[in-house]
Simulated scan of single mutants.
Amino acid sequence: MKKHHPDIRDLVYVHLNQNDQYVLSYGIEFAEFAAAFSDTLNPLLLLKHQFDDGDFNMHTLLEYCPTNRIKKLADDDIYGYGDFCWIDFAEEEGLNELTGQEIAELLYLGHHKQHLKLPFYNKLGNRFVYLAHDDGFFNKIYYRSFKDFFQLLSQALSSKLGELKLEKSILGIKKKRLYPPINKEILLSLTPFIKEGICISLRDVDHQRSRLEIPVWVIGDFASMDDMYEEYEQISGENCHAKIIFDKKTKEWKLTVI
């Protein structure tokens, strides 16, 4: 039985499947995804959703979210939708050119969260296919370019860190501390580990006077996020495989592989 972990935001699991061009993840939500690509996201053709402010496309008989409403969608209780699946598209013209076979492939994607053929369509010019169940708990995202995945990871991790470590000001009001995005080169060098499946644990950050150390464990390939979480609970008592380190003085990130 699936549990919702209340601390979903401070543990990130990512597993990259290079051949099929997708990443399985736990701990990163659509709001963080939308923030990472806020200026560049195309409209979203909604395959599974409960958003009540979409527009209707007559050809596919599906609703879509125009770019100017993506922020509204991101602010919604997407976790509460259950299934949340979409594919982006450049022009509505492209939607109207889809064949019955292609529409069937899209419906299969939304229903089964797996592809019949790699889901990148020239007619749509899509960068992503986003397939989630209990958004943030189980997410499977197809990337036309993995550069986008590393951009998301670098921004989501630094943003989460800022939210977790709220600093008290002189007046006692908690304020968010801002951290620069983690250099993509650092995350790219973790690729061999990410292909195996890693946990990046913000709850286990070691706060030192001059630096922060974020532990990374290689834990393997999981289709069930409950199984992944149990494995994390076992492995988190052991030495980690790498540390992402923030130097408070230079405000720079670096990586140590152990």
Score class of each variant (00 low, 15 high):
residue 51 F to N: 02
residue 144 R to M: 12
residue 92 E to I: 13
residue 140 K to N: 03
residue 119 P to V: 00
residue 103 I to Y: 02
residue 92 E to S: 14
residue 61 L to M: 09
residue 55 D to F: 07
residue 83 D to W: 11
residue 133 H to W: 10
residue 137 F to S: 09
residue 96 N to T: 13
residue 112 H to C: 06
residue 108 Y to I: 10
residue 64 Y to F: 13
residue 106 L to N: 01
residue 82 G to F: 03
residue 85 C to M: 04
residue 147 K to M: 11
residue 91 E to P: 07
residue 60 T to V: 01
residue 131 L to N: 04
residue 134 D to F: 10
residue 138 F to L: 09
residue 72 K to M: 11
residue 74 A to C: 05
residue 103 I to K: 06
residue 131 L to Q: 06
residue 108 Y to M: 07
residue 56 F to Y: 15
residue 99 T to K: 01
residue 84 F to H: 01
residue 75 D to S: 08
residue 93 E to L: 10
residue 134 D to M: 13
residue 94 G to I: 06
residue 93 E to D: 04
residue 138 F to K: 05
residue 102 E to P: 02
residue 104 A to W: 06
residue 88 D to E: 03
residue 76 D to E: 11
residue 73 L to T: 04
residue 90 A to K: 11
residue 151 Q to A: 12
residue 86 W to C: 10
residue 125 G to K: 14
residue 69 R to H: 06
residue 89 F to A: 02
residue 69 R to T: 05
residue 106 L to Q: 05
residue 135 D to I: 07
residue 79 Y to S: 15
residue 144 R to A: 10
residue 113 K to W: 14
residue 88 D to R: 01
residue 130 Y to F: 10
residue 57 N to C: 14
residue 77 D to N: 13
residue 90 A to Q: 08
residue 107 L to V: 13
residue 140 K to V: 06
residue 150 F to A: 06
residue 109 L to S: 03
residue 86 W to Y: 10
residue 132 A to G: 08
residue 61 L to E: 13
residue 86 W to I: 02
residue 85 C to Y: 04
residue 102 E to T: 02
residue 109 L to V: 03
residue 73 L to N: 05
residue 128 F to G: 02
residue 71 K to F: 15
residue 128 F to E: 05
residue 82 G to N: 00
residue 148 D to L: 04
residue 75 D to C: 03
residue 148 D to Y: 03
residue 110 G to H: 03
residue 136 G to R: 05
residue 137 F to K: 12
residue 71 K to T: 14
residue 119 P to N: 00
residue 57 N to W: 09
residue 77 D to Q: 11
residue 96 N to L: 08
residue 87 I to A: 14
residue 106 L to H: 09
residue 59 H to I: 08
residue 109 L to G: 01
residue 108 Y to D: 09
residue 128 F to W: 01
residue 118 L to R: 11
residue 122 N to Y: 12
residue 138 F to G: 03
residue 119 P to S: 01
residue 129 V to K: 07
residue 71 K to D: 15
residue 110 G to W: 06
residue 53 D to P: 04
residue 119 P to Y: 00
residue 95 L to E: 10
residue 124 L to F: 07
residue 115 H to K: 15
residue 150 F to Y: 14
residue 131 L to M: 14
residue 103 I to F: 04
residue 135 D to L: 07
residue 113 K to F: 15
